[in-house]
Each structure stands twice: as structure tokens, then as C-alpha cells.
Simulated scan of single mutants.
Amino acid sequence: MTPYGNIAFFVIIGLLLLPTILLGLRGKSSKRYNLFVSVIVLALIFGHSLNGSISLVLFTVFQVVLIVAYQRYRLQQNSGTIFIIAVLLSILPLILVKVLPILGLHHLFGFLGVSYITFKAVQMILETRDGLMKEKISVVELVYFLLFFPTVSSGPIDRWRRFTKDFHAVPSSEEYQKLLLSGINYIFVGFLYKFILAYLIYNYTLIYLPNHTYNYLTPFQGQLAYMYMYSFYLFFDFAGYSAFAVGVSRLMGIQTPINFNRPFASRNIKDFWNRWHMSLS
């Protein structure tokens, strides 16, 4: 099942998170139940492919062992060489995923979300090197962070320290009401972006422009229009996914950072980059 790909996914998520919402409105913790929900949803996302499931498990075990081992090493020493090796090992599976198909070879770690999980793992190694992660890491919490299902496929990319702060916090009833309303708002924004605006742009503009079926456009104008319309389509589709992820995260008490800040209102390329996919940049 593709995350946020159809209405059925939202129905399932809504039913699974109903106890989370009820507990939150009563000011109760739902950490353990959310862990259970994550396992169920991850099984729905990756369970259709045995190879994908095995790849996900092996990849996650590899990253967890690497992060924990580097943290234990960092508590004793701080060699730049070991840090570089740890980072290279962390991104090695992603490199294989990108390079081996070009060479016509098969790879092991080809599953949905491998890039975003890798980015999370690398930032944990970076923060460990900088001495920002001195507390002992819980393996269960680390796996939950890496495979947090609302963001596993398309981000945003959260930070470990910020994530665990929300994970351990128990919002009061009033605080959770604000999170709930904010989450619902983001989910509706996601529907507007992905299922309405992106859909209309693709089905009523993009599929016609490459063939210049708009007779009043010259070939150059058609290519120019296609460039701009594809940019808008990419934004609304990606920002829609990100809004869904932020909204569902807030229903679970996790304030995942937003990914876009009106990038097309930017004054220059630098400003555009700072507003586009902010959790990555």
C-alpha cells in the first residue's frame, strides 16, 4: 500500500489512530499504542513485497548497529577518520541503490523510503560527532525514529533530539486539542495540494503541453509553459505528501517540522532553496 496514495489509506490510518486521539484528548500517553500502530502500518506499506520487507529489516538493523557502535566509540574517542568511515558506511546502501541499476546489477536495499531513512541516520552520526548526543540511545526508540511511518516515504526529515522530546512528552488535554486541530488542518491542506491542484495541473495541462496540442502556443512557448507547470505540479504533489506527514504526525503527538514555506514567493535562488524541502537543506 502506497502511503497517502488513496482514500483507503486514510480510512485505515483514521481507524488505527482513533484510540490515540481519544487518549490524547484525555491527556493520556499513547506511546506504546503508537508503536503498535507503526508496526501495523509498516506491514501494510512494505508487506506486499517479501524482498522489500527483508531489505527494510536488514537495512534498519545495519543502521542501528552502526549508530549505536559509533556513539559508544564517540564517548571514548573522537577520530575524524572513524567519523568519515561511519558516514560512508551509512550512505553506502543508498549509493548502491542509485549506482548498481545504472550498471545493470541488482541491489538489496531497494525499498520505499531508503533515502529518507539514510538522511536520518547520517544526521544522528553527525550530531554524535558534535557531542550533541551523549545519552544512551534506546534501540526501540531509535527504530521508531528511523521508521516513523508518517514520514518514512517522503519526509520531512526530523531530528533525533527534537523527535525524542515530543515522544517522551505527554501533552495536556488542551495542548493535544491544538495538535489535533493543527494536524487535521495540515491533512486538509494535503488533500487540496495533492488530490486537487496537482491532479488538475497534471491531467489538464501537463499531458497536453509536450505535444503542443494548444494550437495558440509556439513550440518555445509550449516548452516554457511545460517547465513552469511541471514545477507547480512537483511542488503541490510533494508539498501535499509533506502536509499529510506533518498532519498525521501531530495526531500522534509528534510535531514534525514543515517542509515548505511558500517557495514560489522567493526573491532569488538562495531564498528558494531555503524555502524548499527545508528539513533536507
Rank of each mutant, 00 (worst) to 15 (best):
W273A: 14
V68W: 00
L103A: 14
I40R: 12
E175P: 05
V39T: 10
L44N: 10
S49N: 10
R267G: 08
L25N: 12
P150M: 11
L147D: 05
F149T: 13
L146Y: 01
T128S: 07
S38K: 00
Y73R: 05
T2N: 14
V139K: 02
V39Y: 06
G24I: 11
A225Y: 08
Y228Q: 01
G155M: 06
Q76C: 03
Y214P: 02
T256Y: 02
L92R: 01
F148D: 05
S153L: 07
S153I: 10
Y193N: 14
A265Q: 11
L146M: 04
I254Y: 03
Y4T: 06
K120G: 01
Q177T: 13
V99R: 02
M1T: 08
Q63C: 10
V61I: 15
G14S: 11
K134L: 10
G27P: 05
S49F: 05
M278E: 01
Q255M: 00
F148Q: 03
W276C: 01
F272T: 03
F10R: 09
E174Q: 14
S281L: 11
L200K: 04
H277N: 12
Q177M: 12
G253F: 05
R159D: 13
G5C: 11
L147V: 08
Y214M: 12
R275I: 06
Q71P: 03
P263Q: 11
L105M: 14
L50T: 14
Y199G: 01
L23N: 09
H168F: 10
Y204E: 13
P93K: 13
A245L: 01
R129F: 05
H277M: 03
I95F: 14
N78F: 00
V87D: 00
T256D: 02
F236K: 03
F235Q: 02
S153P: 11
Q77S: 13
M278G: 01
N78C: 04
Y144R: 03
L251A: 08
L108F: 13
F260D: 07
